[in-house]
Amino acid sequence: MIIQCDLTVVRDPELCKTKGGFEIQVPPSDLAEQFGKLLLEEEETDVVFSVGGETFPAHKVVLAARSPVFKAQLYGNMKEAKARRVAVEDMQPGVFRALLKFIYIYTDALPVIGDDNICDDDYDEIIRHLLVAAACR
């Protein structure tokens, strides 16, 4: 009698493992800084606000995106929609400037306004108006 044995050896495949774990480093957002620059350098503005004798160039699309009130004013059916110069009454120029900074730069925190020569009374009013403006977001 002849007995024949066939043996098959099965081994794990010898494949090189692919190194993973690549992470792309994304730089932190500087959106606020860039929008701040946009406001500061008065580039490509399409509307000018006249407040208490001072003028404030601005961008309609930014204001509309940030505030439904400005959107209704600048893209509605009344005269401001077609005007390049909009008069704002009953507001201090400094207050309006702070409002613009708030709209362009900040999302959560109240602004630090150290370099303006604003007296204490005006400063209090700024805070109040900013709160109101924030409520309209």
Partner: peptide, 12 residues
């Protein structure tokens, strides 16, 4: 005749 109105004034 809305085109002659001031939104800023009315809103305020």
């Amino acid at each position: 005749n809305a085109s002659g109105l001031s939104f800023e004034e009315l809103y305020r």
